[in-house]
Design a binder for these strands. Structure first.
Lengths: 343, 343
DNA sequence: TTGTATGCGTTATCAC
DNA sequence: GTGATAACGCATACAA
């Protein structure tokens, strides 16, 4: 346990007040005194007690993020990029990131939010994987604690299902529209969509993008084959198999994430099809492994690392009092065409 | 800001003490009173103020981990698995993980450690990527704060270079010995080793494993070609190129990590060699992308997720007073032979 | 079984 | 420019 302010003050024959202000850089301290205090503090290895400071300031200096636990999603490189994005930017601004994990919509998740937010354990929260009716948004809004979301941008402003939430947006729908248009241009007519969990906004928005492209091309979206998977490789494999086992399987599989797509790629191969040539497969995220797959995976890349950094920036700015909520920013995912959709 | 203990007490016409003890489950509270208190607390949405509790208990409920920042290492899936391992286990035991990032051995890193440890921001620290003369170990030991390392097990107990540190160990050297022996059995005689940063213990230990295998086979370790890379793909690519440009390039490249190996694989291909057939390449870690590479990458797999979980378990047990420091555990990496070392 | 009083280490408000 | 003092909200030693 390091030295306390009081001890330091006694050592210097000064009052606690003066020492405190000298260290915090208040202007009403004699230059000489400040020097003396700072020197003494350094040589005594003084470090302000977090608990006490928190008690007064009501600022934890930490932003919270809860990983979607309970699955094997820890293999998802998306989170790797996202977390480091959070950390790096937070660190550069002197803030810390508090993390934990809980299955989405679980009791544990609620407990965590209560403990962190009501208990004053974090200054703000970072939200990812927005859900259709997301209790987190309501909760955070109700508590008046700042938060920032990463969410798809719903252009037709969300049919009342999810609450609006401040943050960084990615045009998932637009991306999927472009991707699907490309597949249609290649001549694909029988498409399969492998979505993530149906309660996720991104599952719906990406699906909507596919549908919009179909409609624009004068094709009935009803013909779209739809399957659902968890956001991991194995689940993508299973879902793809179900589609491939149909009497008339699709000629193109549009996956909701790269991991799902990698699983689909495997399923296509096992089913005896030539991925790319006979059946096109596409992903979403732009994880490094997508480029390594064979055939390399067509995908929609989003700058996950940068996005996470922006989220931290926005949240910290908001906390610093720049009260004006910055306008929503919309990122465009980048369509990367690779051999998995080459005919 | 939620309700405070005092307000709750007033509401109930009880003293703060009683309310506090009722909620904390002390036995000296009338059953009826406890019921009443708990009910009131729930309906008032009471949640103990973290700051105040911390002030008294001196327990943050958080374990700290600092990511090696400053590089592009955020693409390393190792950290993804490691972090989720930490989070999941911590969450299951009611603890949180505090993270930040800083370049190894930087001033920022020191500041972070000071702030977190001296300031009482965490109950303990988790250490990865142990260095040869690791100031972190000395610092933490000096402060008497509990910590757990993930480190290679140095059998000849470290020639005084690094300090011993409690934690989970992986037999990097043994793994590399087995891998190298395999390559030798395949007939390779001219080997190249691409190490990570030289200040890392794992770089040295993995190298030692290679050397030991050479010696066991009656081959002079002096003949081993050695290059150094950062722990990422691009740096691995560069290092491999340097080796391949030699007058007499190696026939097998032993990389210190999978990411390095993936870069090496690329370099081998670009140099016009057939990876696997003409030049063998191996990695270390067992990241998912290793299996996807073409050719699939031979590697030493370690159960990163589980190891991280064990680290948390050990640290929390230690904090809970089970003072007996658990004996060091040694994990054996699993050799996964794939086409990248097939002749 | 319950209540009173004190202190944890800082910061902020005042008075000097 | 500096110092005394009062909080912040909770946990406990001690008194009742």
């Amino acid at each position: 346990m390091p030295i306390t302010l009081r001890e330091l003050a006694r050592k210097l024959n000064l009052s606690i007040t003066t020492v405190s202000r000298a260290l915090d850089g208040y202007p009403d301290v004699a230059a000489a005194t400040r020097e003396r205090v700072i020197a003494a503090a350094r040589e005594a290895g003084y470090e302000p007690a977090y608990a006490a400071r928190l008690m007064r300031r009501h600022r934890t200096g930490a932003l919270g993020y809860i990983l979607p636990g309970g699955g094997e999603q820890f293999r998802d490189p998306f989170h790797s990029a996202f977390l480091t994005g959070l950390c790096d930017r937070a660190a550069s601004q002197g803030a810390d990131i508090l993390i934990s994990s809980a299955p989405p919509d679980s009791a544990e998740e609620q407990t965590l939010y209560r403990r962190w937010v009501l208990g004053g354990r974090v200054d703000g929260m970072l939200i990812n994987r927005l859900r259709l009716r997301d209790w987190r948004i309501q909760f955070l809004r109700g508590q008046g604690i700042p938060f920032v979301c990463l969410a798809p941008s719903p252009d037709p402003p969300a049919q009342g299902e999810e609450l609006e939430c401040p943050g960084v947006r990615v045009d998932d729908r637009g991306g999927m529209r472009r991707l699907t248009a490309h597949l249609l241009a290649l001549g694909h007519r029988r498409l399969g969509y492998i979505g993530g969990p149906p309660e996720l906004v991104l599952t719906r928005e990406r699906l909507n993008g596919v549908r919009e492209a179909l409609r624009s091309a004068g094709i009935d979206p009803q013909g779209l084959l739809i399957e659902t998977a968890a956001l991991d490789e194995d689940s993508g494999y299973q879902a793809a198999r179900r589609l491939l086992n149909l009497a008339e399987p699709p000629t193109a599989l549009i996956a909701c994430s790269d991991l799902i797509a990698l699983g689909a790629l495997r399923a296509v191969q096992e089913a005896g099809f030539q991925p790319g040539a006979e059946i096109a497969v596409s992903g979403y995220d732009g994880i490094p492994a997508a480029a390594l797959a064979h055939p390399p995976l067509t995908t929609l890349e989003q700058p996950t690392y940068q996005i996470a950094g922006r989220m931290v920036e926005i949240l910290l700015a908001h906390l610093a009092g720049k009260s004006e909520p910055p306008p929503d920013e919309i990122y465009q995912p980048r369509l990367i065409l690779r051999a998995s959709t080459q005919s």
